[in-house]
């Protein structure tokens, strides 16, 4: 042991907290944000809601640990996003998923200034889930590459390559939409 000196024993006195109230406040304040991000990755309301509920349930079960983290919301968001990506990796999900786009992805805007954004949004919905997660975390959540790497459990290099490939796909798909009006 490298500590320079011997320390006397310490009496450990903790802080009394209302655990449930604290969690309820956290839940109420963050549910909507975590849901939107998870939905953007899942592109399926039911899947997103299930993943977010699971993430919050895990957070509740380990609330003493989660609340001690620097950013408890980021911790829950990470669990929810990974919950979705785990489901996407399951063969039964891939085989049974309809592939339908969410309703709002199909509805074009009538505002001319929004045409590009609508086309982009529709293109985002067709990205592979992990690439979509990178795009959502980068451009909606404004996370850094390092933070995205932590969320997705991969290296910064992987985030860079996934982001690069995603942006390349978006440009190709957007061009296709410009040409045919169909992102698929």
């Amino acid at each position: 042991m490298e500590a320079a000196s011997t320390f006397p024993s310490e009496v450990l006195v903790g802080q009394g907290t209302d655990r449930d109230t604290e969690f309820a406040d956290f839940f109420g304040a963050t549910w909507g944000r975590v849901f939107r991000t998870t939905y953007a990755v899942a592109m399926d309301r039911s899947l997103a809601e299930d993943a977010v509920q699971t993430a919050f349930a895990k957070a509740y079960a380990a609330w003493d640990r989660v609340r001690a983290a620097d950013h408890p919301e980021a911790y829950v968001r990470r669990m929810a996003v990974n919950e979705v990506l785990t489901v996407f990796r399951r063969p039964w999900f891939r085989s049974e998923r309809s592939g339908d786009l969410p309703d709002d992805a199909r509805a074009p805007s009538h505002e001319s200034s929004s045409v590009t954004r609508d086309a982009l949004w529709r293109a985002v919905t067709t990205l592979p889930p992990r690439q979509r997660a990178v795009v959502v975390l980068r451009y909606y959540e404004d996370l850094s590459e390092a933070e995205i790497a932590e969320v997705l459990g991969c290296s910064r290099g992987t985030v860079k390559s996934q982001a690069s490939d995603a942006l390349r796909r978006l440009r190709v798909m957007e061009a296709e939409v410009d040409r045919t009006g169909d992102p698929t």
């Binding site: 939107r36 939905y39 709002d104 992805a105 949004w121 985002v124 909606y140």
Partner: peptide, 20 residues
């Protein structure tokens, strides 16, 4: 080929997700 900007991408995500 289209030349969207990062701001367009931020706008697209924000516009659609905030409406959810």
């Amino acid at each position: 080929m289209s030349t969207y900007t990062p701001e367009d991408l931020v706008g697209a995500l924000t516009r659609h997700l905030e409406a959810v």
